[in-house]
Computed example of a mutant assay.
Amino acid sequence: MKILGFVLNVIWLLFCGIWMALGYVVAGILCCVLIVTIPFGIAAFRIAGYVLWPFGRATVEKPGAGAPSFVGNVVWLIFAGWWLAIGHIVTSVPLFLSVIGIPFGWANLKMIPISLMPLGRAVVPTDQKFGAR
Rank of each mutant, 00 (worst) to 15 (best):
Thr37Asp: 06
Phe96Tyr: 11
Pro63Met: 06
Gly17Ala: 08
Trp82Leu: 12
Ala27Leu: 00
Arg121His: 08
Gly17Lys: 04
Phe79Asn: 12
Cys32Ile: 14
Pro113Thr: 01
Ser98Leu: 15
Gly64Asn: 07
Val99Glu: 03
Ala122Glu: 06
Leu95Trp: 04
Ser98Asn: 15
Ile42Thr: 07
Leu52Val: 11
Trp83Asn: 08
Trp83Gly: 05
Val36Gly: 08
Asn108His: 12
Leu4Arg: 12
Gly5Thr: 09
Ile11Phe: 13
Leu109Asn: 15
Phe70Asp: 12
Gly72Trp: 09
Leu30Thr: 00
Met20Phe: 14
Ala132Ser: 05
Ile102Pro: 09
Arg46Ser: 13
Val124Trp: 03
Thr126Leu: 09
Pro94Trp: 03
Gly87Trp: 15
Tyr50Ser: 04
Leu119Asn: 02
Val71Thr: 09
Ile35Tyr: 00
Leu119Tyr: 05
Thr91Tyr: 08
Leu8Pro: 05
Trp76Tyr: 11
Val90Gly: 00
Ala132Val: 02
Ala85Ile: 15
Pro39Phe: 05
Pro68Trp: 10
Val74Lys: 01
Trp53Val: 02
Ile3Phe: 03
Gly23Tyr: 10
Leu109Asp: 14
Ile42Ala: 09
Arg133Asp: 01
Pro54His: 03
Val99Met: 09
Ile29Ala: 13
Ile18Lys: 04
Gly64Thr: 07
Leu95Ile: 05
Lys110Met: 13
Ile38Trp: 08
Gly23Val: 12
Ala122Asn: 02
Gly101Ala: 10
Ile102Met: 13
Phe6Lys: 01
Ile100Leu: 15
Gly28Cys: 04
Gly41Leu: 10
Val25Glu: 11
Gly105Met: 14
Val71Phe: 11
Gln128Ile: 08
Val71Leu: 13
Val26Ser: 05
Leu4Ile: 14
Arg57Ser: 01
Ile47Tyr: 09
Cys16Gln: 05
Gly72Gln: 04
Glu61Trp: 01
Arg121Phe: 06
Pro63Asp: 06
Gly28Met: 05
Phe96Ile: 10
Val26Trp: 11
Pro54Ile: 00
Ile78Ala: 11
Met117Phe: 14
Lys62Thr: 07
Leu14Ile: 14
Thr91Trp: 04
Gly23Arg: 13
Leu8Ala: 13
Trp106Tyr: 12
Leu52Gln: 08
Val60Asp: 00
Lys62Gly: 00
Leu95His: 07
Lys110Trp: 12
Leu4Lys: 13
Ala44His: 01
Lys110Gly: 09
Leu77Arg: 09
Val93Arg: 02
Ala27Pro: 00
Ile38Gln: 06
Ala27Ser: 00
Ile112Cys: 10
Pro113Leu: 02
Trp19Gln: 13
Pro94Arg: 05
Asn9Phe: 02
Phe96Pro: 04
Asn108Val: 09
Ile114Glu: 01
Thr37Met: 06
Met117Tyr: 10
Phe104Ser: 06
Thr126Gln: 10
Trp76Val: 12
Ile29Met: 13
